[in-house]
């Protein structure tokens, strides 16, 4: 079997994505939902329940007194933060094994993913004036392709690294040349397999090359792109691919961003990361 076929076949070995996030989102859209209804949906998934309590008590969400049950967590966190906490808890279990082949440490991919998710909200506030839960989920999942690609990258690392160092080829392009698919496209396919909406799929597939997405009006892939590049620059969860990715020069004028805005975002991110230790430590 060709390598690319083996990679694609591996998608079917990934367990289904927990329904909890979708179910809660649907409930919250009803005008007359009750806290009990929401809490009951969450309690159905014990691992998500435990993680939500941990996260609700983290400095990032900043409670004044200890939250000990899900009903209190639902009330305290509020709609947006609750959905974010559920998605973070749901995604974390797929990242437990990390992505050896790309990273030295098992926790690197998760740390990087949480950092990109937090950074996506900082950039979103700067560009649109508000935070965005769907963007948060997309950012958290942007590198999900690496959980499968890791072992294949490890086996072909010499060839990939040779291409990257000798020919001004990005790591993404080298993956495609050597393995027949890159981790961003593969991540998009995993998102489809998990039945995520198209905008999340596109943000994952195009997170290194938002300029190649024809639906130009979409901002989500661009924000994930910026957030990812800045976390790579900051060295949060950097792997064998390092910073070997293309700079997409349209990004600053497109959103009217100055270099100074981006440097300021890095300052804000390092504060957020200090407050988000619990989010990172849940795996």
């Amino acid at each position: 079997m060709k390598i690319v076929d083996r990679i694609l076949k591996s998608i079917n070995t990934i367990p289904a994505f927990p329904e909890t996030g979708n179910k809660v989102a649907q409930l919250l859209r009803k005008p007359d939902y009750s806290v009990n209804e929401v809490a009951n949906v969450i309690k159905y998934d014990p691992s998500i329940t435990a993680n939500i309590l941990k996260m609700a008590n983290s400095a990032y969400f900043g409670p004044r007194h200890k939250i000990t049950n899900i009903n209190d967590a639902v009330v305290y966190l509020g709609q947006q933060n609750l959905l974010r906490a559920i998605q973070t808890a749901g995604v974390s279990k797929y990242y437990k094994k990390g992505a050896s082949g790309y990273f030295d440490r098992v926790t690197d991919l998760w740390e990087h993913s949480v950092a990109v998710a937090l950074m996506s909200q900082i950039i979103s506030r700067k560009i649109t004036g508000q935070e965005d839960t769907t963007l948060y989920t997309a950012a958290l999942l942007h590198d999900v392709g690496k959980i499968i690609m890791g072992e294949f990258v490890r086996d072909s690392l010499t060839k990939i690294a040779e291409l990257v160092s000798s020919k001004n080829i990005s790591f993404l392009e080298a993956e495609e040349i050597i393995l027949g698919i890159n981790h961003a496209d593969l991540g998009g396919k995993i998102a489809t397999y998990w039945k995520f909406p198209a905008e999340i799929r596109d943000a994952i597939s195009f997170h290194h090359r938002p300029d190649l997405l024809e639906k130009e009006e979409k901002t989500m892939p661009w924000i994930v792109y910026i957030a990812d590049q800045f976390c790579l620059m900051l060295g949060v969860g950097g792997g064998v691919d390092g910073l070997s990715y293309r700079a997409v020069s349209e990004v600053l004028p497109k959103f009217n961003l100055r270099m100074k805005d981006l440097e300021m975002s890095m300052v804000l991110l390092s504060d957020d990361l200090n407050h988000a230790k619990e989010l990172i430590s849940i795996i």
Binding site: N168, Q229, M233, L243, S244, R246, A247, S249, L252, M259
Partner: peptide, 14 residues
């Protein structure tokens, strides 16, 4: 002080 590829006028933090 590393940079991303073909680093021109932006993202020049490195």
């Amino acid at each position: 002080g590393a940079s991303i590829l073909d680093d021109t006028n932006f993202f020049r933090i490195g």
